[in-house]
């Protein structure tokens, strides 16, 4: 049995799971769509991983990250729960020496992380606006009836990208429609959109940051060659897309788990047979004051194990 570490990254769009060995080599990875059902998706992912590799390995540490990191930590029994910025930085630092900049674009958020000498020195995330993230690309691809996987191919064929306003998703879309009705070809519009998104990213998230090579481009959107090309053009040098770019957050969580278990001793991982456990959440509106908080209750096999969502802490319950 090989000792292994599990990393789980549950984001708004995708749920990623990876298993690393003691040396940090990737043994297995799963990239699933969250589809608005984080609990089922995590259970399903763990199940799939288990059927592939459970016979050869023993999970000795488990970490979760992503916007559903607290929820997923309760499902899998995590040893460490970390924000996605730290997780991404850790993963990139382990994969590459001397990373200076990380560009990460996910389903509904985008971030930039600046590192010097292997330590994060600055970072920024997009604000409420989701223009320029994966969801928007998804939406435009489906409007143009291009499978999102082929999006980059179209951009690559462009010879003269058209200029599209990338400040806001709504304006970008109407601008694209305008250009398409004027008769510009699809390749140039797609490439123009990629460049607009990069401009938007640099003006918002990357504003005032010192972007030095090597730049690592990770997150689900890094699969899109059109954006890679647009970043290269904007920066004037080539960005590096890691082999496992889509699951870097999960890889970071696994590395963090290795570190955490080293200090803690043993893992709280519940095992691969999660589908036998019945996880359920219910919610209610607290009537205690006019805040009317929506409190979420988390049940494991009908036992209430956690409650959150209240501002005052009255209902807070955390059994770990």
């Amino acid at each position: 049995m090989i000792k292994a570490y599990l990393g789980v990254d549950v984001g708004s769009v995708s749920t990623n799971l990876v298993v690393l060995n003691e040396q940090g080599e990737l043994l297995a990875a799963k990239y699933l769509r969250t589809n608005g059902r984080p609990i089922q998706t995590v259970q399903e992912g763990i199940q799939k991983l288990g059927s592939e590799i459970a016979s050869q390995i023993k999970i000795v540490g488990c970490g979760t990250t992503g916007s559903a990191r607290y929820l997923s930590s309760m499902i899998v029994g995590a040893d460490i729960v970390k924000n996605e910025i730290t997780a991404h930085a850790i993963a990139a630092c382990h994969e590459f020496e001397n990373v200076h900049t990380i560009i990460e674009i996910g389903g509904q958020d985008s971030k930039i992380i600046i590192l010097r000498d292997g330590v994060v020195t600055d970072f920024a995330m997009n604000t409420v606006c989701a223009a320029g993230t994966g969801s928007f690309l998804d939406q435009q691809a489906s409007r143009l009836c291009i499978p999102i996987e082929d999006f980059g191919g179209y951009a690559a064929k462009s010879t003269n990208p058209v200029r599209i306003a990338g400040r806001c998703a709504v304006f970008a879309e109407s601008d694209m429609i305008h250009k398409q009705q004027l008769g510009y070809n699809l390749e140039d519009i797609v490439a123009g959109l990629c460049e607009a998104l990069v401009r938007n990213y640099m003006n918002n998230v990357g504003k005032g940051k010192e972007i030095l090579a090597p730049v690592i481009f990770q997150g689900g959107v890094a699969a899109n060659f059109g954006l890679v090309q647009a970043f290269n053009k904007y920066l004037g040098f080539d960005v590096v897309v890691p082999r496992h770019h889509a699951v870097m957050g999960a890889i970071g969580a696994a590395y963090l788990a290795r570190e955490a278990v080293g200090m803690k001793g043993r893992s709280s991982f519940k095992g691969f047979d999660l589908e036998k456990i019945d996880f359920k959440t219910t919610s209610f509106e607290c009537k205690g004051c006019s805040n009317a908080c929506e409190v979420v209750q988390f049940f494991e096999n009908k036992n209430l194990v956690a409650r959150w969502g209240d501002r005052c802490g009255k209902w807070e319950l955390q059994v770990s």
Partner: peptide
């Protein structure tokens, strides 16, 4: 807010 603050504190502690 929590994500940003946690990341900020991680950064300070790692540094």
């Amino acid at each position: 807010v929590r994500t940003r603050v946690e990341a900020f504190l991680d950064m300070l502690r790692y540094q």
